[in-house]
């Protein structure tokens, strides 16, 4: 096969894959399209394009959702939680992985892993009971605060993040670390100067997964947060879901506004992945 023929096949194959991925995305078309329709239009035909592209539902949704406060809250909670999860989980996973043969490391690691199987529904009530009790006896605010929620996210996010990091520490040659020790470096220095930078691909993954989970999470914030000034975006969006009926147009508008920041975030974080691939190739 000549080089030109190979190139043509490559393009055809790529376009095919691209077309499939478009179909993969088609349900989101429904999402976008219905955020512009009136209730009557929705009732008549959910598949069609909207009659007019008015942004009125976006406006109404923005006001009722208290959008700026909600975005700020979601942002603070997501960013701080993720940073701290990365900080704590990467360190923990490295120590656990490097001491794999010791019983204490095995027990701790298995505990983290096992708890990933517990459905949140069984932890909900005791969690809130326990923390409200702490709040009452020790006197500082946990429930209905951002920092309380962040603390809980660190707790819930550790298991998965430690698990992810643990698997990838294996791909770091231990010889590099030993070289560092020979040079007289402390474990802190060895970790942050040698190991952590090499964990970049998996750190990207951990960041992306945690950010998306925390940003979109509804259940935990709904139980912990009550006051308007700390509410996150999912809580505000779900206010359009009534008991019998869902105000689809407003809900969709709210949802589009919810996922836009995440899309932008992913678009930016993606470039890191590309850089990672390039680095890998150069290695």
């Amino acid at each position: 096969m000549s080089e030109k023929q190979a190139k043509v096949w490559l393009w055809i194959g790529s376009l095919l894959v691209f077309a499939v991925s478009l179909i993969h995305l088609s349900p989101l078309y429904l999402l976008a399209v219905n955020s512009f329709k009136t209730r009557e239009e929705l009732y008549e035909n959910v598949l069609s394009l909207p009659k007019s592209l008015s942004f009125q539902y976006y406006q109404v949704a923005m006001e009722r959702m208290n959008i700026l406060t909600a975005i700020m809250n979601s942002f603070i909670i997501t960013v701080v939680s993720t940073l701290l999860i990365i900080l704590f989980s990467s360190m923990t996973a490295w120590v656990l992985a490097r001491h794999e043969d010791r019983m204490w490391a095995k027990v701790i690691y298995m505990t983290f892993v096992a708890t990933m199987l517990i459905p949140f529904q069984t932890l909900m009530m005791p969690l809130i009971q326990f923390f409200s009790q702490i709040q009452q006896t020790l006197g500082f605010q946990i429930i209905d605060t951002r920092q309380g929620l962040i603390f809980m996210y660190i707790g819930f996010g550790s298991a998965m993040s430690v698990f992810l990091y643990h698997g990838f520490v294996k791909s770091i040659p231990i010889s590099l670390e030993e070289a560092g020790y020979i040079d007289g470096a402390s474990p802190w220095t060895v970790f942050w100067r040698i190991v952590f930078p090499m964990l970049r691909p998996i750190t990207n993954t951990v960041v992306i997964l945690n950010v998306i989970w925390i940003w979109n999470d509804y259940l935990l914030p709904s139980l912990v947060l009550s006051s308007e000034h700390v509410k996150t975006i999912p809580l505000s969006t779900f206010s359009f879901f009534g008991q019998f009926t869902i105000q689809w147009n407003l809900a969709m508008a709210g949802l589009v506004m919810t996922i836009l920041p995440v899309i932008i975030f992913y678009a930016v974080a993606q470039r890191n992945i590309i850089r990672g691939i390039a680095d890998g190739a150069v290695k």
Binding site: H99, T115, T122, L123, P126, I154, G155, A159, W188
Partner: peptide
């Protein structure tokens, strides 16, 4: 060093996940 690296995570995790689980 081990305590420094592993301690905080295990503490927070225990309070948020293990305690409610045992309560449950």
């Amino acid at each position: 060093w081990n305590l420094l690296f592993v301690g905080p995570t295990v503490c927070i995790f225990s309070l948020v996940v293990l305690v409610p689980f045992v309560m449950g």
